[in-house]
Computed example of a mutant assay.
Amino acid sequence: MFVFTASPLPGDAAANLHKIFSPTIDQASFQPDLQRLKSLTAGYVAFCPSPWPAPGLVVTSEISGQSEVWLPLDMIRPVFERLYRKVLRYPPILSSTPFSGASSWASIVAAFPEFIKHCCTPASLLDALLTDDELREKFIFWSFMPRRFYGAGSNRYPGQTVFVREWLQGRTLKTVRCLDAACGDGESSYALASLVLESGVRVDKCSVEGWTMDPLEVWCAAHSCFPHDARRQAGFRAATGQLFSGGGHKCLTFLQADLLNAPVTERFDLIVCNGLLGGPIISDVSQVEMIAQNLTALLQPGGLLLVADHFHAGWKKRLPTAVIAGRFAECGLRVREAGEGLAAEG
């Protein structure tokens, strides 16, 4: 389990990145793969008519079909999945990568960011990743943390924020221990810490933990770093800058954790679990029930647990709110509507 405290210092970021990310790779072990991809590419270029895959290309079914004939993903995907395993010092969540669910190599290339747009064939991409350490680092982060997953801002649930602020004002807690379950890139964790500190709780009496399954997210959250996306990093640092400059980040810790197998910790006064339950990430009723039980076990008697999923609302919503509410009620919690979601109290 990876645990990183929030720190703005580049030295801390570099040291922690080394714990999860190998700075070197055995190029020789990938040479047979590279030669096979070069052969595939040569055939594709020689016999397949344009348009060839390119960033921003509108991929029609015909283009996707041609791509699959000459550059079949079943021959390409295993190579890059092996690269992920070699670079990362933990078993990666491969379902998060661009190769998971892709219809063709063309559809993957169409979404390429600026820094790899010159590598439009699998051979050219692999060759570049093997020889360019900085490019490889950016590619790995882009693969597991694409822009579509993030960037909605720290106050995605303004109604919930108001509810938490009123709850904090109505209590006389000298210490407040908070959990941002499924924290993602950590933006909501920083917002939660700011909210608690603004209520009058001292930094040394406040504790906010952000939990997520992906160690790359843990690292990005702790250090406000996004090597693959300079614009996102600048926006994130602008949003968290005041907290860092005032020393408020000292109450923040981020760790790798799976809510289906929650680590044993001290209990929390306030738990927030947003963007996880009822949508495409967790919609199996038995898993929702298990997470409800685990979160209830982590909640202090008299504590507050908030659940919302505005991000996956509409056509992505797979479980009615009443079903989720019922699972928490079965755990002995009092459940009611709050902001954009539910509040459950012990």
Rank of each mutant, 00 (worst) to 15 (best):
Q242C: 00
E289R: 15
V176G: 01
G341T: 02
G170Y: 09
F30Y: 15
M213R: 15
D258R: 07
L255I: 03
A262H: 03
L173Y: 15
A230R: 11
S188A: 15
T161H: 08
D180P: 03
K19F: 03
G186K: 03
L276V: 11
L305E: 03
R202P: 15
F328S: 02
Q66W: 14
G314Q: 12
W211G: 03
I116S: 01
L173W: 14
D214H: 08
I108H: 01
G151N: 14
L94K: 04
K19W: 06
Q242Y: 00
W167F: 14
C48R: 12
Q256W: 07
D204T: 09
D33P: 01
A343H: 09
E266D: 13
D12C: 09
P23I: 10
G302C: 07
L259G: 03
W211Y: 14
L34Y: 04
L83I: 13
A110M: 10
A152H: 13
R318Q: 15
V272A: 06
W219G: 02
A128K: 08
L173K: 07
F236S: 04
A102D: 09
T296D: 10
A181S: 12
V335M: 10
H223T: 06
Q31F: 04
L277H: 05
L34D: 05
Y150H: 15
R237W: 00
G200T: 12
D33Y: 06
L342R: 07
T212I: 07
P227F: 03
D74M: 05
C119L: 04
F47A: 13
R267M: 11
D26S: 14
H18N: 11
H249P: 00
A343N: 06
Q233G: 07
R237L: 06
H228Y: 01
D309E: 12
G159M: 08
E134Q: 14
F236Q: 03
H223L: 05
F144T: 02
R171I: 06
L71T: 05
S189L: 06
M290Q: 15
L252K: 02
F244C: 01
P10Y: 08
M75I: 05
V69P: 01
Q242L: 00
E62T: 13
C273S: 13
P49W: 09
W52A: 11
E198K: 12
E340I: 10
F47R: 07
A193N: 02
W219D: 01
T296M: 05
L37W: 05
L130P: 04
P92S: 12
V264M: 08
G56D: 09
L73Q: 06
P78Q: 10
S64Q: 06
L88Q: 10
R267D: 09
D127N: 12
A42F: 07
C48G: 02
R136F: 11
P10G: 10
N274H: 15
A106W: 04
A338D: 02
P91V: 10
C119H: 13
P280K: 08
A325E: 08
D12M: 07
Q35A: 15
G303Y: 00
T41S: 14
E337T: 13
P98M: 03
E266T: 11
F311D: 07
I291D: 05
L37G: 01
D180E: 14
L277E: 07
A329K: 12
F141K: 02
P78C: 10
S189V: 11
R165D: 11
E337H: 12
S286T: 14
A15P: 06
F99W: 09
D74A: 11
A238C: 09
I63Q: 03
R147T: 11
G170P: 04
F2C: 07
